[in-house]
C-alpha cells in the first residue's frame, strides 16, 4: 500500500485558533477538510505537510443558510453530500446540486467538502503520479523538477483546474470569505484563481477559506455540463457552467459562460457572453457563443483523452449547456 508520510493532526475549534496554528507552522502545515484531495497527494509525496490542521470542528465552517438578502451561505466545511441533499439549495440553486452530484463518488462526496473542492490542487498526468513514477521521468517543475513535460519549452506549468464546482461558483457570481493573520477579505470567486498550474490560487498561504456566498438566482437560470470518461469517479476533462438572466422580452439580459478543465484556471468567456446578450437563445446565437467560447480553450496532453478532441468538444458542450437553458 502507499503510505502517508509522517504527519500529525490538529483539531482547532475556532477560526482564530486554526489561523494561528497555520501561521505558526507555515509551510510545514496544511489545512485539511475531507482530505480526499490532500491525502492521495500526500501518499504520492506531492505535498508533505507534517502538521495537518483539520478544519471540520470550526462551527462557522459548518453553516448552510440563506441570508437576509436571499443569498446562500455555504460554510467551507459543508460536505458535498449535504449540499446535494439540502432542500433550500435544490429549490433555489439547483445547478449546485447538479454539479456537485457529478463529483467523484458517493463515498468521496460524504467526506469531500465544498471548501476543499474550491481549492483542490490542479491536475496533470505527469504530476498525479507516485514519487517513484515521477522519479523515473525525472520530475517536473510543479514538484521537485525543472521542466514541464507537457510543454517542454514552456516557462510555466499547465496543470489543469479540475474542480466541478469552481466554474459554477464563478458563473453564479459567488464570493468567498477568507480569514488570515492579516484579517478577513471577501473576493469574487473568480478572483481566487490564477492562470498558473503551480500558483493557481490567489489565496495567501495561511488564509482559511471560511465560507462562500452565492447570490439569489432571481430570474436567472444556470446549468453545468461535464465531460468525463465514466459516469462516476472521473474528474472533468471539460466542464461548462452557463448562467443566463433573461429580460422580459425573451432575450438574454446578462450571461456568464465559464469553461473548466481546459486551463489552469476557470476561463470566463466574455466573448460568449457578448454573443448572447441582447439576443434570444436561437440556434444561431448559441452557435456563435459556442464558437467564441471554444477559442481560448487550450487543452494540453495532460489529462484523459486526446487534445484535439477535447478542444472540439468545448463548442459542443457550450452549445448543449446553452440549449439546456432555453
Amino acid at each position: 500500500m502507499l503510505r502517508l508520510p509522517p504527519c500529525e493532526a490538529r483539531f482547532p475549534t475556532s477560526i482564530a485558533e486554526a489561523v494561528e496554528l497555520k501561521a505558526k507552522y507555515g509551510p510545514e502545515a496544511s489545512y485539511v477538510a475531507g482530505g480526499t484531495d490532500l491525502y492521495p497527494n500526500m501518499k504520492r509525496r506531492q505535498q508533505t505537510p507534517y502538521h495537518l490542521i483539520d478544519v471540520r470542528r470550526i462551527p462557522q465552517l459548518d453553516r448552510l443558510e440563506v441570508d437576509a438578502d436571499g443569498g446562500l451561505i455555504i460554510g467551507a466545511g459543508v460536505t458535498l453530500t449535504r449540499l446535494i441533499r439540502d432542500g433550500r439549495v435544490a429549490a433555489g440553486w439547483p445547478v449546485l446540486g447538479q454539479a456537485a452530484a457529478t463529483i467523484s463518488t458517493p463515498i468521496l462526496r460524504n467526506m469531500g467538502t465544498v471548501g476543499g473542492n474550491l481549492l483542490i490542487d490542479t491536475r496533470c498526468n505527469y504530476y498525479d503520479q507516485s514519487y517513484e513514477w515521477r522519479k523515473a521521468i525525472d520530475f517536473c517543475m510543479k514538484k521537485d523538477g525543472e521542466i514541464c513535460w507537457v510543454a517542454p519549452s514552456s516557462p510555466r506549468c499547465w496543470a489543469v483546474q479540475s474542480s466541478d464546482l469552481v466554474p459554477v461558483m464563478v458563473a453564479l457570481g459567488a464570493e468567498v470569505i477568507l480569514v488570515g493573520p492579516e484579517g478577513t477579505r471577501t473576493i469574487p470567486a473568480q478572483a481566487l484563481y490564477h492562470n498558473d498550474g503551480i500558483e493557481y490560487l490567489t489565496k495567501k498561504r495561511d488564509e482559511l477559506l471560511v465560507s462562500l456566498r452565492v447570490p439569489a438566482m432571481g430570474t436567472a437560470k444556470a446549468t453545468y455540463q461535464k465531460l468525463r470518461r465514466r459516469g462516476a469517479f472521473d474528474f472533468p476533462v471539460l466542464g461548462v457552467a452557463a448562467w443566463i438572466r433573461p429580460n422580459g422580452g425573451g432575450t438574454v439580459a446578462d450571461a456568464r459562460v465559464v469553461i473548466g478543465a481546459v486551463g489552469s484556471y476557470p476561463i470566463v468567456s466574455e466573448a460568449a457572453a457578448e454573443a448572447l446578450v441582447g439576443h434570444a437563445l436561437e440556434d444561431d446565437t448559441i452557435d456563435a457563443a459556442a464558437r467564441a467560447a471554444a477559442k481560448p480553450a487550450k487543452p494540453l496532453d495532460n489529462t484523459d483523452f486526446t487534445i484535439g478532441w477535447r478542444k472540439d468538444m468545448v463548442a459542443v458542450y457550450v452549445r448543449r449547456a446553452l440549449a439546456a437553458l432555453r
Binding site: 498526468n125 498525479d128 503520479q129 523515473a136 459516469g231
Partner: peptide, 20 residues
C-alpha cells in the same frame, strides 16, 4: 517520455463502472 506507463492507477486507467 522514457516509456513511462501513462496511468498506473485505478483512477486514470479507465475501466467501466456500474454506470457503463
Amino acid at each position: 517520455r522514457n516509456v513511462t506507463h501513462k496511468w498506473p492507477s485505478m483512477l486514470e486507467y479507465k475501466s467501466p463502472t456500474t454506470h457503463e
